[in-house]
């Protein structure tokens, strides 16, 4: 059967990994290709690279970074961050991304999803959504790195995006991100119940139990960042623990 995926995520700024990764034996801990390759060797199922560059010059490096990572990586690569046009998506795909993730630009202009899916296929069109809880109301979409609350219902937006052609949803809980309190399983259940495309859980993972909870809530994949980068766990150790609690990940 299809295995739930474990996906390390690298934040890149100006071609360099932002958060330090504590691999003692890595020659260059800031090199996204070296880190992506290392995660592949540990058993990662895919790699996600989010370009978090604050400047246009920094973002210009995303294509070069993608090409560099692709040359050493033999598992799928998703690249996101700052994708605003079909041409942005085209450049990343030509450089070796297998999928591109759109976020803020798609909220501002949902037709972007349809345009990318029509040109390159739904299988390489990922909608990244940052969702935040509201008092007494369902989750809302936040954009611009969390600075702007849109008031848009997150689950409705996810459904709309899937109908426009998004082939996968990368769903980050803005409330859980960085807390190590576990994924927001209520959010994941609601999203997985609303769409038939795969949902990737993001935000809050601290251990294998959290990953299992997200998968049991309906996530097809789990995004993991800080616990890998901080060497609290490895992809291999997380997969080993997942198998021991009955989650059939790829060996």
């Amino acid at each position: 059967m299809l295995a739930p995926r474990l996906i390390p995520c690298l934040d890149v700024d100006g071609g360099r990994v932002v958060k330090g990764i504590r691999f003692r034996d890595l020659r260059d801990a800031g090199d996204p290709a070296a880190q992506a390759r290392r995660y592949e060797e540990q058993g990662a199922d895919e790699i996600v690279i989010l370009d978090v560059s604050a400047t246009p010059e920094g973002r210009g490096n995303a294509v070069a970074t993608t090409r560099h990572v692709r040359s050493v990586l033999s598992i799928p690569l998703t690249v996101g961050g700052g994708v605003r046009t079909v041409e942005d998506a085209h450049s990343l795909l030509e450089a070796g991304a297998d999928k591109v993730a759109v976020n803020t630009a798609a909220v501002e202009r949902p037709a972007l999803i349809r345009e990318i899916a029509a040109r390159f296929g739904s299988q390489c069109t990922v909608l990244a959504v940052d969702a935040a809880a509201r008092d007494g109301e369902p989750w809302e979409v936040v954009v611009n790195g969390g600075r702007v609350r849109t008031g848009i219902d997150a689950i409705t937006w996810i459904s709309t995006a899937a109908s426009l052609g998004a082939g996968e949803i990368l769903l980050t809980s803005w409330d859980r991100d960085g807390t190590h309190a576990g994924y927001d399983t209520d959010l994941l259940s609601a999203a997985a119940g609303a769409v038939s495309v795969p949902v990737i859980a993001s935000g809050g993972a601290a251990n294998a139990r959290h990953l299992a909870d997200a998968i049991e809530a309906g996530a097809s994949a789990v995004l993991v960042a800080s616990i890998l980068h901080d060497a609290v766990a490895t992809v291999a150790s997380l997969k080993h623990e997942l198998r021991s609690i009955g989650i059939g990940v790829r060996p």
């Binding site: 995926r5 996968e168 495309v197």
Partner: peptide
Amino acid sequence: VVPHLGWNEVTPVSDDGLLAPGW
């Protein structure tokens, strides 16, 4: 869940061709 997206097991019908079992 469609697309069928991710890793799955491949089981060849024969072991004398190019294909080998795996993910």
